[in-house]
Design a protein around this nucleic acid. Structure first.
Lengths: 263, 263
DNA sequence: CAGTGGTCTAGACCACGGA
DNA sequence: CCGTGGTCTAGACCACTGC
């Protein structure tokens, strides 16, 4: 008989939910290497019996582990420890404005242009509207600590007869602009990230050398009917911006439950 | 009394699980705009009564919606429709080798160097080993359709006295190399993405102009004890590589359950 | 206080996988 | 066939929210 860690038990009088305690026990076993990838967990029925809890509670614990990517289940077979997934990464990029604040810096927005214009051929195709459609046009730089970091151009299908106030540039994210000036709520966002050379014009505006590498982000917002409602292009200084990502198992990272929601 | 869509019912004899049918009903309502962001769903008890299913089943449906990001719950208050989250993005980047195949291209690996070397100061610090430690060193380009796309350099703490075979370069991902030649399984991966200018040396190897912008990815693999076990640096042609991301609500995208697991 | 979601139980039947 | 996870029930008590 296996003598591994029959020590751990669940405190049913604890304020911490039983399913959470159980999930932590398995998380510990997996991260300590006591349970190795591809190894099977005991059947849910056995776990329930051993810890004297109901099977539904066991299932809730396993659901947490599945969500955290630590185990996977196969109907009719069992529950197995997963291999760490480290061969795909997701680089997170918030709206740059948010990104700067997260780093504890104070971002400044320098409005360069803002007006209504009639869409030319290119913009009309980007926004799927007839050429000549009235659009809102914003152009500004973002800077922190006296240094220009990004240069953004944004277009919104102009629907509301609302005067545009610089005040709204307190949060110049495209979704915010669309919400303020568009007629439909944006629900989908497509972004394309490229590495590129800065253009002479951009170099002048950002006050950086002409050979600065940049991140180029093109952004399109769509409404529920998949109709484009906003389009933007941003240039981020490559010498000041890095995207970092962590993937795989990080101990003490799996509290998907018990989080406060802030909306 | 509200007369919205009391039409929809749940077919308990269907092969489709009740919780899934219910989740789809709410997903439909939300995506059609019948339920607007910040609007509350009926209490779980009411839903259960209306559709004549148990509350646990209702909760499972809501759990799906929460996982899909369509709603959020607040203890003691209720369940509310979420605003689409489109202000942060995650750019996915698989191992480049996988990425090329996904596009239907046939990647070719051109091994440039492969040998055991003793770590110099810089590599030793990257891998947290004493200078002079024996490391495996790989350097190769990836190409598709006769064009060089990336240039990669990888180092692995050499533990196994295993001859390195070019055959293993069929999958030259760093995690694969570490698994083959290291002593610990890699479980965490840190990647840093930068925009940069190509160096003259790299330009020569990739046979591209000297002013080509590139993505620079630095990758470190760690074992369970957070000890680095592999390190690599990759250069991707900026004129050939884009990273794309979609965020927010996309109708018919929320089947988090009922997926086949392939491991 | 009443109403809400969060947790939990002790059963049940099913579909699937493998012997 | 048996054992597995997947689904489901009809209750229960709790902690939290807001009045």
């Amino acid at each position: 008989m296996s003598m591994k860690n029959e020590l751990k038990t669940i405190d049913k009088n604890s304020a911490i939910p039983a399913y959470y305690q159980l999930a932590k026990i398995f998380e510990e076993s997996i991260c300590q290497g006591e349970l190795k990838p591809e190894e099977a967990l005991p059947p849910e029925h056995n776990i329930a019996a051993q810890y004297e809890i109901s099977r539904m509670t066991v299932r809730q614990a396993i659901a947490e582990l599945v969500a955290a990517g630590l185990v996977y289940t196969m109907k009719g077979k069992g529950t197995y420890v997963a291999k760490p997934a480290i061969d795909n990464v997701a680089f997170e990029l918030r709206d740059f404005y948010t990104e700067i604040r997260k780093r504890g810096l104070v971002p400044a927005i320098n409005l360069l242009q803002a007006r209504i214009l009639k869409a030319d051929e290119e913009l009309a195709s980007k926004l799927s509207v007839p050429p000549g459609t009235r659009c809102l046009f914003y152009r500004f730089t973002l800077s922190a600590e006296g240094e220009h970091l990004a240069y953004e151009t944004k277009y919104v299908v102009y629907a509301k007869q609302k005067p545009f106030l610089e005040v709204e540039l307190k949060d110049p994210s495209l979704s915010n602009l669309v919400a303020a000036y568009g007629d439909k709520m944006p629900v989908t966002c497509k972004r394309i990230l490229q590495a590129a050379m800065i253009t002479p014009q951009e170099a002048g505006i950002l006050e950086v050398p002409a050979d600065t590498p940049v991140f180029l982000v093109e952004q399109t917002l769509y409404d529920l009917d998949k109709k484009p409602v906003g389009w933007g292009k941003s240039v981020y200084r490559g010498d000041r911006c890095k995207l970092t990502s962590y993937e795989g198992w990080h101990k003490e990272d799996f509290y998907s439950g018990m989080v406060r929601h802030e909306q």
